[in-house]
Computed example of a mutant assay.
Amino acid sequence: MGKGMTNTTAMLMKNVQSGKLKPAELITHRFAFNDFMRAYEVFGNASKEKALKVIIDNS
């Protein structure tokens, strides 16, 4: 990992820890594991689907 990525990661983690960035608010779509292919389609068409982050749950 390059130096720029390390600095970005540290900054992101600091913002998450301080509460300025709430990753859960970035999740726009959730799918069960059985719907993996649909999740892949949605993520592949993110602009059309208005998908920011797609979560696949295996529980």
Rank of each mutant, 00 (worst) to 15 (best):
D35V: 08
N7V: 06
I56R: 12
I56D: 07
T8Q: 05
K14W: 01
A32F: 03
D57G: 02
S18C: 04
K3T: 15
A46S: 14
N58W: 12
N34A: 15
Y40T: 13
T28S: 15
F31D: 09
I55S: 03
G2M: 05
G44V: 01
V42I: 14
I55P: 00
K22S: 08
A32Y: 03
T6R: 13
N34C: 04
N7M: 09
D57T: 00
Q17S: 15
L26F: 07
E49R: 11
M11A: 15
R30A: 02
R38C: 07
K48S: 12
Q17G: 12
M5D: 04
I56Q: 09
S47W: 06
L26K: 03
V42C: 13
R30Y: 05
F31A: 14
P23L: 09
M11K: 13
A10C: 03
F36V: 04
K3Q: 09
D57H: 03
F31Q: 07
F43K: 09
S47A: 09
K53R: 14
F43M: 15
F43N: 13
N15I: 04
N58S: 11
A46R: 11
K48P: 01
E41V: 06
S59K: 07
K50C: 11
S59C: 03
E49T: 08
T9Q: 04
F33R: 04
V42D: 10
E49S: 07
L12F: 12
A10Q: 02
I55M: 15
M11Q: 11
P23W: 00
R30H: 06
F33V: 01
I55E: 12
L12Y: 09
K50M: 11
S59V: 00
A10Y: 00
N15M: 11
M13R: 14
N58Q: 08
S47N: 09
M37S: 07
I27H: 12
L52R: 02
Q17V: 04
D57R: 07
G4R: 11
A24K: 00
F36W: 08
D57F: 05
S59D: 11
L21I: 15
N45T: 05
K22L: 08
A10F: 01
F43Q: 15
L21E: 04
E41G: 07
N7D: 13
Y40K: 14
F33I: 01
D35R: 10
A32E: 13
N45D: 14
S47H: 12
Y40E: 13
H29G: 01
A32C: 02
S59N: 07
M5N: 05
S18Q: 04
I55F: 07
K53T: 08
